[in-house]
Amino acid sequence: MKPVPFSYERPRDLNSALSMLAASRGSAKIIAGGQSLGPMLNLRLVQPELVVDISGLAELKRAEIRGGELVLGALVTHADIEDGRTADVTRGAMPGVAANIAYRAVRNRGTIGGSLSHADPAADWISALAALGARVTLRSLAGVRSMAIEAFVVGALESALDAGEIVEAVHVPARATSAHWGYAKSCRKTGEFAHAIGALLVDPAAAAARVVIGAIDTAPIVVTDAAELFGGRIAADFKQRFDARAADALLVKAGIDDAAQRHIHVSVLKRAVFEAAA
């Protein structure tokens, strides 16, 4: 299908983009790479009056290491991360996730900021970045605010973005040399949206672990202090200590009442745990 007619603006800088967004009073949509919004426009699920194209804004295309963390502008693409055109502070974790998002033609245009803004529970970055302990900065004409990824994603396709606000950058903390990373997803076919995602960052040296169970049709389950999933203690034997029942209990609490669905999520998380321990 073809989209309904819309007006189009290409702002010269971030401030004029924010002004257009504010002036539109909710009838405008921001477009960057368009890999999520494009299909929705074409299917006429989304019918904005105005599309504000930010894809040309150089100020959102920065990638730099600042104060020990990686700061990625919202317009950095999955392929930029996959190919190493941006620095990596996660020792391969982020390039690995990026390389398995959809297909290469999509990764060449799809952006990290766009993926987060869209807040699709089945998408990779909201789960992976929550496990890595990343934060987002949001900007509006009123100023800037910053929050953890797990606070940013509120529900299915629902983020904490206020009207008039856009994702400006993602801040990724450096992964400690002692920290293990595991990421697993189950998709019905290559490149499809995942129906289960498990992600974890385990640092036995610091006795700390962050665990994410994603693709659950709502905001991912993010356990920032995941000792409960490893028998109360994070240590080098975390693989043996992984407690599938505790993971299942989290899914029950999140309202997943289908037992087979829960079983798949727990099994995929187990894969991620095994990968982290390997």
């Binding site: 189950s186 019905r188 129906h195 037992a259 087979a260 669905q261 079983h263 798949i264």
Partner: peptide, 11 residues
């Protein structure tokens, strides 16, 4: 034969 059908049958 979807993943969900397999797991549901196994359970």
């Amino acid at each position: 034969i979807t993943p969900h059908r397999v797991v549901a049958a196994v359970l």
